[in-house]
Design a protein around this nucleic acid. Structure first.
Lengths: 363, 363
DNA sequence: CGGTGTCATGACATCGGTGTCATAACAGAG
DNA sequence: CTCTGTTATGACACCGATGTCATGACACCG
């Protein structure tokens, strides 16, 4: 690889002059500039980042830790929206700031995080983004490094800056949309009750119901997320059985994520129930591969991963530049409700009607 | 940030001795070693990658170019399997080789590739992986850099090493599986005819039919992929109409990818046709979020993105080490056929029976 | 014509490690 | 007791940039 000395020799000038042409930080005569440029072209010279950053004490690097890459397969199957969307949002912002994003992957193993951070330190990254695969408390204590950090999709109790989805508000807005169509009996097929998202969204669900004076019926809430494992269809089938056995049969079903909604579509149809004519279905995440391809297209609340990633990157850049104090409270990002074909007004007669269910098939 | 000089001073030794402790490349007395280790701990010393790589002329970095990150959203909607799975496979292999993967994203804009490669050159990456979002000819000429490269999911005509999926073999194996269930009239809803995958898979499809002596019926082949845009459901609906109007109604439908299969499920069911009882459906990709969650679970051919990424990384490492000559021909990676509930033997009477189709609804 | 200021350029040190070579300390052999 | 060989350590230069300071060449002014 050609160095600045090679270029200097070929152009018949000193290395410092080549440096000046490169950086344009001091006047250089037209003639010299041309000679230097020609020499750089001929030699295919590209300045060494290592040498530069050594002198300047600035790496221009930002580290990002995620399980998105090695988890993608697992995650795509098991959870909702791939956290990769968060990485996307961050990437877009960081690129505009002329920094380089160094993405490291945990390979799903938390115990590798300290190693990854050490690698980041070796590269003298100027900031770190830590991305979790779903909204949760931070599962480990990050090593103290003095490097600014921002958590995404997770939070800790040491006031580390953090960006999370507004689950409560999202489910609230989604439920309001369902209510606005005239539904009064709404079932809710949730994710695991231990999940942060489930707790928050249930709050939003209840708040929306309360606001229009509908009493909360706990029998219309069932957890059904087994991350796509084989027993899940059965679990959903049973939950639906229970919902439809209620005195007032639900006319709409909220699902903890779009994947669950997809499974619900299949089971409902097998039982002879049409979506949305017989029952409306809504999801969560706006995982567009699902929400737009399902027939009928799925009404859902956006899980704003892209926006979260962007906001986190922006926050990190601000903290790094010292222009802003690190936020003390988690930043909550809201998503849009996407109203699509799967949500329509309930039939007037559905208040009393009982739908004929086909018998249960083997699964 | 502490330097090796700080550590040396604190431990009362020379920097070189600290270096020896770090690298273990020369004998150091127990006592000194302990003192140095203590000093490093106390100062939180982490060696500078920049200084090291400057001296050693080795960056330990491998660059990867992809649109996976900024495209993820688009891709997830539009195409089949996210190319991220390729990145995954590469990551796993490279990590084991103790190198660091530098992932750069085109943001969907090909004209940014030269810039990304320049950034790679500044970082003195030792090899480059170029990942395309689906099997296609390389869309641009990569700058000549003298850095070893491997193309993934694409190929050029300059004998750049490349790793691609075995589309012909995959569709052949999948079709053989369908035939083995007893199907004789098989429709094929393809991706765009211009796609590399479509051409190759059609070959595999025909080869499988020919092998059992079934004449190829072009009326049973229709392209239907609009990347999830609104008219797609209509297009699929029309294609299915055409298939079912055939003298010998198909008993199985092959789809160009799992997303199309998902759309087909919805439309078939709306028309009162059950999968798999009335017609078997198979996809392509084994996009497990879809194939395992659909009800019934989808039979499909694996698009071996992970394996392709791993193989590409392995090939790159070999070429980099000089242990192996770069492969002259594209390396074709085969995937497994995943036989799931959506494919069963056709009903005996279906050879003559005509299914009652429900009328066409508005879409 | 000498003094002064600006422009263009170069010499040299430095960033933080590591390779090369020198050397001090000490043990064992003759 | 001196010689030799090994072990442990340090001095110094160098990797490829750039910041600091110095200097030569002009142009302009009085």
């Amino acid at each position: 690889m050609a160095t600045i000395y090679d270029v200097a020799r070929r152009a018949g000038v000193s290395p410092k002059t080549v440096s000046r042409v490169l950086n344009g930080d001091a006047p250089v005569s037209e003639k010299t500039k041309k000679a230097v440029t020609a020499a750089m072209g001929a030699l295919g010279y590209v300045p060494s980042h290592a040498a530069r950053s050594m002198k300047s004490h600035k790496s221009g690097l930002i580290g990002l830790i995620t399980g998105a890459i090695s988890n993608a397969d697992e995650t795509a199957t098991r959870a909702g929206l791939p956290e990769l969307n968060i990485v996307q949002g961050a990437q877009a912002v960081i690129e505009r700031s002329r920094k380089t994003l160094l993405i490291s992957d945990t390979g799903g193993r938390l115990d590798r995080v300290p190693d990854l951070i050490r690698t980041f330190q070796e590269h003298r990254v100027e900031g770190i983004l830590y991305v979790a695969d779903y909204h949760k408390p931070l599962e480990l204590t990050l090593p103290v490094t003095g490097i600014p950090k921002v958590l995404v999709n997770c939070f800790d109790d040491r006031a580390t800056p953090s960006v999370v989805p507004d689950d409560e508000g999202g489910q609230y807005a989604l439920t309001k949309t369902v209510l606005a169509e005239g539904h009064r009996d709404i079932a809710y097929l949730t994710l695991a009750p231990t999940q942060e998202a489930t707790k928050l969204r249930l709050k939003g669900f209840k708040r929306a119901l309360a606001e229009v004076g509908i009493p909360f019926n706990p029998d219309l809430v069932q957890a059904a997320d087994l991350f796509g494992s084989p027993g899940e269809h059965q679990l959903i089938w049973d939950a639906l059985d229970k919902f439809f056995a209620e005195e007032k049969r639900p006319t709409a079903i909220c699902c903890g994520n779009d994947r669950l909604a997809m499974a619900v579509y299949g089971i409902l149809r097998r039982r002879g129930i049409s979506v949305p004519e017989d029952v409306s279905v809504v999801g969560y995440d706006d995982h567009r591969l699902i929400s737009e391809t399902l027939y009928s297209a799925l009404t859902t609340a956006e899980l704003p991963y892209r926006a979260m990633g962007a906001r986190a990157a922006q926050t990190l850049l601000e903290v790094m530049s010292g222009n802003a104090a690190p936020p003390e409270e988690p930043i909550r990002i809201s998503g849009q409700v996407q109203h699509r074909a799967s949500l329509i007004a309930p039939r007037a007669e559905d208040k009393d009607n009982v739908i004929n269910l086909k018998g249960r098939n083997e699964i």
